[in-house]
Simulated assay, not measured.
Amino acid sequence: MLKNIGQTLLVITGPTATGKTALSVELARRINGEIISADSMLIYKYMDIGTAKPTLEERQGVPHYMIDIIEPDQEYSVALYQQEVEKIIPAILARGRVPMLVGGTGLYIRSVVAGFHCSQIGKDEAFRQEMQQLARENGNIYLHEMLARVDPPTANRLHPNDQKRVIRALEVYHLSGKPFSWHNQPQNNRATPYRILQWGLTLDRELLYQRINRRVDEMLQKGLVQEVRWLLEQGYSPTLTSMQGLGYKEIAAYLNGQISLPLAVETLKRNTRRFAKRQLTWFRRDPAIKWLDVNSEPETLVLQITRDLAGLSPGM
């Protein structure tokens, strides 16, 4: 077990389907760690299969935070995430344990690691309503193209149908005069009080795509269609931000009679592959991330990380 590594925050990230959950749980068990989810879909209650939410059995008794914290129809933001995590990290450290930020939502991770102040950029309801009206008249792609003109990095990261976040990025530019991606640069924000160590999981793209396809098939076997049907029956609209997530949007379209199930499944696999590609593009821009090939045995990866940490810990 590691001792005396000080005010250190570990980050385990990478694209979907690279095995972040299993690796992080095993690492946490070895180093007395506690896991903070950095996944924008795991915050929602009742959405388990489509989000690949780790079960209690998979968590193996390791404390997890920022999972199942809001209803699917509740609003949430990066600023709220940042505020909550900045309370959780010192509490973990005060218990003499190691905080581990684990997930694939780059903006959540960046909000903590780079420390940019999301909440300091206010809101403009009139502007939001104007953007929503433009989307109704011209489609989501119109807003996405507007964003691409003023903030290409953020537009590249966001799907055109992620209307809420596209509008927020446009709103940030409208209010501050600077693109959202500018506010996301470490040099433009406060220094974090923690020593940050980051590892990213990756593998050959074709192998990654095969994993994604298998994961989608497994989700269907576990009851993804039934889960989405239940959410719709509870009155959760398919237009909600939560229901626009991968798996939920495609299956909702099938259940609403818009497409066939085979087409919904193929669309989900395609959209997930594209999402993984965007994730890789986002994380590859960060030179602080040390990349690990998940073709290696999980034990090898855990040992590699613990060896990296041993240099910080005279008690190892």
Rank of each mutant, 00 (worst) to 15 (best):
T192E: 00
L309E: 01
V85F: 01
L240C: 08
L240P: 02
K290M: 07
R273V: 13
T300S: 14
Q226W: 03
N189W: 09
W282K: 01
E227Y: 07
K20P: 09
K53P: 02
M146W: 07
Q221D: 09
E233Y: 13
S242L: 03
D217T: 13
Q279W: 07
G235A: 10
Q120N: 12
L207Q: 14
T202M: 13
P63S: 00
R211A: 07
R205E: 14
K20G: 01
S296K: 15
G223V: 07
H117W: 06
G14M: 06
T16S: 15
I92L: 00
S24W: 04
Y248V: 05
G139Y: 04
S77E: 02
R128A: 03
F180H: 09
H174T: 02
L197M: 13
Q82H: 09
T105S: 14
M66G: 03
G122S: 13
T192D: 02
S296E: 15
Q210T: 13
R284H: 13
V228A: 11
A52D: 10
Y65A: 02
Y108R: 04
A17G: 01
Q129F: 04
D217E: 14
L261T: 13
Q129D: 02
T241H: 08
P314I: 08
S111H: 00
A91F: 00
V85C: 02
W282R: 04
Y108I: 00
G14E: 07
G200M: 09
N4S: 14
R270Y: 14
L107G: 00
I70D: 09
L292A: 10
L197G: 04
Q244P: 06
T105L: 05
I196W: 04
G115T: 01
E297L: 15
L10F: 05
S313Q: 05
T51F: 13
E58Q: 15
I12D: 00
I196D: 06
E34C: 03
F283P: 02
A126G: 05
G103V: 03
R284L: 14
S242A: 15
I69H: 06
R128I: 11
P15G: 05
M41H: 15
G104K: 06
L56Y: 09
T306F: 03
M1F: 11
Q210N: 11
C118Q: 10
A253L: 12
A28R: 06
T21A: 04
Q210E: 12
K249E: 12
P15K: 06
I31W: 04
R195L: 13
R157N: 06
E34K: 09
I43R: 11
H64T: 02
Y81N: 04
R29A: 07
Y81L: 00
